[in-house]
Design a protein around this nucleic acid. Structure first.
Lengths: 334, 334
DNA sequence: CTCCCGATAGTTATCGATAACATCGCAGAT
DNA sequence: ATCTGCGATGTTATCGATAACTATCGGGAG
């Protein structure tokens, strides 16, 4: 024999209420078929006995759950926190619980997590970006679990996607800068391949300037320091770049501080452009230029579309949201 | 009849491998009792059939899972991201999966989440802080699920706790400032009750100064703006405070910007003290004073102790980690 | 007065995996 | 040669809940 049951289950409540197990099940779920008087009594007894449903059993027979898995590269970045908040809010309101993973930009980690998550038969899965391990897309398609890719877009999503076109975002920023007269662009970001979205933006920049963009790849956990150090290196180049684009606003802020410390004034001597329009840019002495990304909207839209997908409706498989260039102080005298 | 089975289960693999279901189960788990040759073949077949284990079934019979639930107030704060990273890392290495929740400092949200999580029979639960809904502690104790409280400490934890003494942290900062000659302290933080840790730190400050500390309560999503606005208000007070303590470094940074914009120099005219020693403080033109909190260590220590607890060992139920005052530029002439 | 029907409640089979127990075959001990 | 022991497998019961089907009761229609 197995050890005796410890926790109170439907059976115990049924015994205490002197009804059948099935009646309790119906009462707990608020399903038709129980007189309201009996239901009230059962609920009372269940509460008294501290009954806790067992979701494992429920999901086993139902072959699904109310879990939505969300994979993000990192939480050390308000961008992902915003998207997450938007999504979670939408999912929770629809009665779904979210399970989070962070991959640290490692696609192997992502793949392992997806495999593990699938064993829980989730209602849906959200991945960040559109670049994944080789066979992940197939595995997901085959599992039939609705899948959403966010933040980046592609014409060939695993299932559905909602995000921005990073290449275009880079182009937009570069184009505007070029029109303002900037000619020697530089970029400070993460090592190649670590953040494919950043690589795409850089590509867009190169396209806009129709030529090379000096790229400093900084590998450093502290984003502020990374931007600081990368910028100091750039300032020593000859000729010195006249505008620097950053992976994100944290790096740009570090860059701004580096410039200030070096006696180089922005925007007089150099243009600085961040990415994401984070909160920090609202209080700076020199307003940074940056690109406003609709991160919360991405989260909410993505979640909504995914919910529709879960319910059998087919939303637009590719949603491309617009970005907006926020001109800070890069306006140049020419 | 129910609908026919769709997904491949142990049964299907067993049939394909021409062995019993139980042998497949053993092979998949790497349990003794299968010849290594047969195991290899079974694994090969399972892979070919795209077999996905069903964790619901496993957890149902095992009456437990490898899930650890973690509840944090918010992710818009590197502090929690750091603790989370430390914990997750430790748990993942031990073979546990983590499920995350954010409560937005709302204890009702926390309680609902815990209830829901318990229905999944998690291996353990982590809560932030030691203040919870009235009956949550009882429910958790009764559920027998190992529970860890982090970030704050109490002499009477639900189960075990690892954190810092926020009252003492406030006291330490206040005491040091007082010794440096500061006499008119002020505090800029969240509305009372929204963050009980902050309230405790303020209490410690009052104790250190042995008198009132002017408190600005700012309610604003953007922490930088909040610190900015709160500081501007303070600067108009008469007499003007000579030192301002902030809820965290984000607010302090906003405050620093407000001072700079108002032509008030720190540390000449005013002392500014943040909290947490976040990355942003490493690149500022005027180094901020702040209090270094061992957030990653809290996460790792907490996770380790919780793992011990899961394995039946009884770790120290209350671990109080030390904080460190980082002197920036508050050193005053006097 | 009988029959039929809807509301309420109970019975049985089932989900997918694992623990416990039963079997089988072969090698080394007696 | 028979027994014993152990590795390798198979068989059965079980976890807790739900779907589908069955049973029971009371009232209105014919």
């Amino acid at each position: 024999m197995r050890r005796a049951a410890q926790r109170t289950g439907l059976k115990d409540v049924a015994k205490a209420a002197n009804v059948s197990l099935m009646t309790v099940s119906r009462a707990m779920r608020g399903v038709e078929g129980v007189s309201s008087q009996k239901r009230a009594e059962i609920l009372r007894i269940a509460k008294r006995l501290n009954y806790l449903p067992n979701s494992n059993a429920r999901s086993l027979v139902a072959e699904n759950s109310d879990l939505v898995g969300i994979s993000l590269p990192t939480l050390y970045n308000d961008v992902f926190a915003s998207m997450l908040a938007g999504m979670r809010n939408t999912f929770e309101n629809a009665g779904f619980a979210t399970v989070l993973d962070t991959t640290k930009y490692d696609l192997h980690v992502e793949q392992n997590w997806v495999k593990r998550l699938l064993s829980w038969r989730p209602a849906a899965i959200v991945l960040t970006g559109v670049d994944h391990m080789h066979d992940l897309a197939d595995a997901l398609r085959q599992s039939k679990v609705p899948t959403l890719e966010i933040w980046d877009v592609t014409d060939d999503p695993i299932d559905i996607c909602v995000g921005i076109d990073h290449r275009q975002a880079g182009f937009v920023a570069g184009h505007a800068a070029r029109k303002l007269g900037y000619r020697r662009p530089a970029f400070v970001g993460a090592p190649r391949g670590q953040d494919t979205r950043a690589d795409k933006r850089l590509e867009g920049l190169r396209l806009a300037f129709d030529g090379p963009v000096m790229a400093m790849r900084v590998d450093e956990d502290n984003s502020y320091l990374a931007g600081h150090a990368g910028t100091l290196d750039l300032l020593e180049q000859d000729p010195r770049p006249d505008i620097v684009f950053y992976l994100n606003d944290h790096l740009a802020f570090g860059g701004l501080m580096a410039c200030m410390a070096s006696g180089i004034e922005s925007p007089r001597d150099i243009g600085l452009v961040g990415f994401n329009a984070l909160d920090v840019t609202t209080v700076l002495p020199v307003p940074l230029s940056t690109i406003r990304t609709p991160r919360r909207l991405i989260g909410v839209t993505g979640a909504r579309n995914l919910l529709a997908r879960i319910n059998g409706v087919s939303p637009d498989p590719v949603v491309r949201l617009p970005v907006e260039l926020v001109q800070g102080a890069t306006t140049r005298l020419q």
